[in-house]
Design a protein around this nucleic acid. Structure first.
Lengths: 125, 125
DNA sequence: CCGTATCCTCTCTGATACTG
DNA sequence: CAGTATCAGAGAGGATACGG
């Protein structure tokens, strides 16, 4: 992606690094659950169970995996409170909140093109 | 997503429809290959083989499947020229180009947060 | 409450070979 | 060139049970 920039004034090595990284990040966040988690979290701080309830259809396992991946990419911050029963809070980092704005754009896009999509599905479905 | 809007002035049924549709669209486009195809196509019109060459690592089969799905959702237009050898052109629809702008936002996001992501990966990797 | 591990199923993916 | 069909292996995802 952004292949035009290769010919631009940006440092070549930097661009290559950006491309491959962006690509691997895409692989990590471009899935349904990650996007939904980012959206649901928003500006709030939620516990594991609250997230689980908020995202319909996600399994315990998938939610855990998704949260670990998001944490690994610096999008989500995980806070463990040493109490019994255990309490763990999740919230978006700054990068995560920035991503959420972009994801909101995606939602806006879906809303704007509802009709086109539905018609296309009727035609080709 | 957009759950705040449920309490807003928008028609309730419309919101529900938008949410479930957005969700099913997400499932269809929120994958690596779809996003890459949308990005590579941009404003151009490309043939199957050109796309295949442009997107490193995609198999013949996956590219076909991805293009079918994108067509099914009204993001890509497929034009078959009745010549021998066959020639098939792919280009983004208006909805597709609109999506590409959003996806570009995603690329921009990745570029902006390169350092944060890399550091998070070092820490948690 | 939160997380991990195991098992089992089912889909996805790539390789290959074949049609128009 | 563009697309379909088939097959086998890999991997994702769900259910369940158990540990901190």
């Amino acid at each position: 992606m952004e292949s035009e920039q290769v010919r631009g004034s940006v440092d070549q090595g930097d661009v290559t690094r950006a491309n491959s990284l962006a690509r691997s990040v895409f692989s990590d966040i471009a899935d349904k659950w990650s996007l939904l988690v980012v959206n649901v979290l928003g500006d709030r701080t939620l516990r594991f169970t609250e997230l689980h309830r908020s995202i319909e259809g996600v399994s315990h396992k998938m939610l855990t995996q998704t949260l670990r991946r998001l944490e690994r990419n610096g999008l989500v911050e995980r806070t463990v409170h040493p109490v019994v029963p255990p309490q763990v809070d999740y919230r978006l980092t700054e990068a995560g909140r920035d991503l959420r704005d972009t994801v909101n754009g995606l939602c806006g896009w879906a809303r704007r093109h509802l009709d086109v999509i539905e018609e296309a599905r009727r035609l080709h479905g």
